[in-house]
Design a binder for these strands. Structure first.
Lengths: 342, 342
DNA sequence: TTGAAAGCGCTAACAT
DNA sequence: ATGTTAGCGCTTTCAA
């Protein structure tokens, strides 16, 4: 072994040098065999391969990449939470594309914490990923400018990246929320509550804007007390619903800003008497099989992920300059809950 | 720049050498500043830092690791499909532990294809991950033996690894399925159908064995026609249910082997008249809010993921030899569907 | 067909 | 406090 004393508990990986020595050939010959290059007699190649198997040699791609100065064939994916069904579907789509390009995927969840996201992003860059697919937090991302300038491809998905103009794939948040709200208005609802995510989150703000716009377009005033923005927390949702559905002038319908909120609301409603109409932004599994099937404005997370990843590889393959901004359409799926009359 | 001609479309990353030259200091001084080592005057350090920011220098961890011969601080996670809620929860738990240890996570989905899993695993190993958390396919994994011998920590989760005895975290599959089946028997059911995943999948086989055992323990014979094993495919489920629920002696209850199958069955049942009792293996979101809430044998994917990842790091921190086999308990959650009488 | 030497970006060990 | 040299595991270049 190359590293002298081979402590039992501290195994050492054999290197090409070890293989070369054991096979009685030069280093370059081993390299040729490992990489399937021409110029090695079948006899020699066989001997080298035997030693490789016997020693359990596996090429160190880190060293290879260092020498070649080439791309690492790895891509980083940064999102809020892999366990959120929206992101896990997006994630799978990204992974599929990455795999099709023979690359490896590094994944990290920011948990909506920009410091954590930053640490992950820089960690990925220090590992020299070829590119990054990011669902950015709302903090400034200027720190990624040097990376982008150094050739790390950058694509945002689901949200834009504050402080940096890069390729971006977004859902049609505002229009989607407007369509969902308009749908409720069409059923005759006038007092429509809106439960959205924390307002500093781009999608939450956009969707709220869509709600306001639909109300305005229909000429119906919005009572600010109908609006509740915040992380989807069961207890919080309980308080909000008690407020919105109680009192002398309760709302008769609810628009929910994301699938986590919708599910939290459904769970809370199950324990209450009121059955307000409900439209959720973002589809979710079993929405169609609930006691009252849930009307949603569906996104297409797989399409968003695929689009973002393909954009990334197009950049890596040298597609030229201006940052693209792609909007992915949403669509209303009426299932029942959104058609409940006031 | 170190690489001479700086083509516009081909950006080159500055290296420590570049920083050193631009700052008019030696290479090692830059290294000291970058790594926060002592022995640099504040004056010099400031100048170096200024150049670093200006050039957008970022240390190449690949080179660093190569030189140090140290661990890479990265871990690979291989599972069947990140978009399956069971695995996405497991995945998040693994990621959490990995992050707590300051490491990075590479993720790959095998899609139940052992060739693909092998390619991913070896790719990870070529990148010199410190360890691998794997949900193994049913193929032989002897090819990982050299990696394990070379010091790559290996932990299996959800399924054991054929051909290699390593640390393993499993759910209590057999007992869980037996408890679910016994629950149905207790309600008076005798003709109980079993819909499981492909029989070469460890968990599918174990759970089926649990079903058989419960039936045998109760002294009730199993008609082989009640058993249907295969990938959860909507069309397939449709045929199976038509067969099980039609005919002169239909089953009165169903035991489902995993959450994908359960959901597929629920979807199909929604379009049919019959309302057989139903127990699903593995819990899923909204199971409690369906028209008939679904009784399940719940696993704890987060606990399984956390346990596996912690085991991995304990190995990396030098915990000694024998492979551990940890069983994570399942528990029956009665919600309604499993309490429907025959 | 084969291999010796140089060097990728970095750090360890040793100067100064 | 700072710099020089060697070398991690590999590939590239060039010579034999």
């Amino acid at each position: 072994m190359s590293a002298g004393t081979d402590h039992p508990g501290v195994p050492i990986r054999p290197t090409m040098k070890d293989v070369a020595a054991a096979a009685g050939v030069g280093l370059k010959t081993v390299s040729r065999v490992v990489n399937g290059e021409a110029g090695v007699s079948e006899e020699t190649a066989r001997r080298v391969r035997a030693v490789i198997d016997q020693l359990g040699f596996r090429r160190n791609d880190g060293a290879r990449l260092l020498r070649q100065g080439a791309r690492t064939g790895s891509v980083g994916l940064l999102l809020e939470d892999v366990a959120d069904p929206f992101y896990s579907q997006l994630s799978r789509a990204v992974e599929e594309v990455v795999r099709a390009h023979g690359a490896l995927l590094l994944t990290g969840s920011s948990a909506e914490d920009s410091e954590r996201e930053r640490a992950l992003a820089l960690g990925f860059c220090a590992r020299r990923v070829d590119g990054l697919v990011v669902v950015p937090t709302s903090a400034d991302h200027g720190y990624l400018a040097p990376e982008a300038a150094a050739g790390t491809a950058l694509v945002c998905v689901d949200r834009p990246m504050p402080g940096l103009d890069v390729d971006t794939v977004l859902a049609d948040n505002r229009a989607g929320a407007a369509i969902g709200t308009a749908h409720l208005l069409r059923q005759g609802h006038r007092r429509i509550g809106y439960l959205g995510d924390a307002p500093d989150i781009f999608t939450a703000a956009e969707r709220l804007a869509g709600y306001r716009q639909a109300m305005a377009d229909a000429g119906h005033p919005v009572d600010e007390s109908w609006i509740a923005m915040g992380r989807p927390d069961p207890l919080e949702v309980r308080f909000v619903l008690a407020r919105l559905l109680g009192g002398p002038e309760p709302v008769t319908a609810l628009m929910c800003g994301n699938n986590r909120t919708t599910v939290a609301v459904l769970r809370e409603l199950a324990g209450r008497q009121e059955r307000p109409a409900l439209v959720g932004f973002d589809d979710f599994e079993l929405a169609d099989l609930l006691a009252v099937p849930v009307t949603v404005v569906a996104q297409d997370p797989a399409l968003m992920g695929r689009t973002a990843a393909e954009l990334l590889f197009r950049r890596l393959h040298g597609e030229p300059a201006p940052a693209q901004h792609i909007l992915v359409r949403t669509r209303l799926i009426p299932r029942g809950s959104g058609e409940i009359p006031p």
